[in-house]
Amino acid sequence: MFKILKYSFYDLIRSRWSYVYFLFYLLLGFVLLFLNNDLSKAVITLMNIIIILVPLIGTIFGVMYFYNSREFTELLLAQPIKRTSIFLGQYFGVACSLSLSLILGLGIPFALYGLFESNAIFDFSLLLVTGTFLTLIFTAMAFNIAISNENKIMGFGYSVLLWLFMAVIYDGLFLMSLILFEEYPLDNFSLLATMFNPIDLSRTLILLKLDISALLGYTGAVFKKFFGTQLGLFISISMLCLWTLAPIFRLAWKAKRKDF
């Protein structure tokens, strides 16, 4: 698996898109720091961008890579390599190169700005950790969609829908249900609802750490009240791990049963 990972990774870090993605974050980091002049504020702005953008890029990149490397996959399938190694190798290749673009692209401007001397370093690292989680999760889901759909257009459609649902529609539905059922106790419901969406989960996680009650919103407040900051952090990170593992297992399962 590591050989496949290595090659997918090299293939990707030399493609133009990885550079574009990297440069975008680099630019974003510098501009935010320049405009905000404050590390903590920049971290919050960044969070709002990362939480929407990272899933989108992960999804699109994942689907694109999977479809584009189909012939290469066939070449590998004829080699004495286990199927799961091929697909997991490719998946981690994509996910690692995307995460690297994110970490370096944002890390460099923040490091230059004096991140290591400031106390925003933990907030910032948590932001990068969440960004990496989101990359892993959404790339894995994109691979799942691509492996289940022969038709590229369908695959793209589903993955964009998935992103739209998780990033936008889910919150809308959530809010609507809160309004509709406001007479009922909704604590448990909203707790669960947050856990079922990795984007919401990441947002809560970062806001818990940043401890900005004004931005926590209803879910965040419930989360905090319910778990306290420490336990809340722990539970949301474990949920993110589950969110990462589930699609990876399904990918491995599906890879064993597919015809090429």
Partner: peptide, 13 residues
Amino acid sequence: IEYLPQIANFPGN
């Protein structure tokens, strides 16, 4: 086994 697939398409990079 050695296999020559029908369509030769490799990672372009």
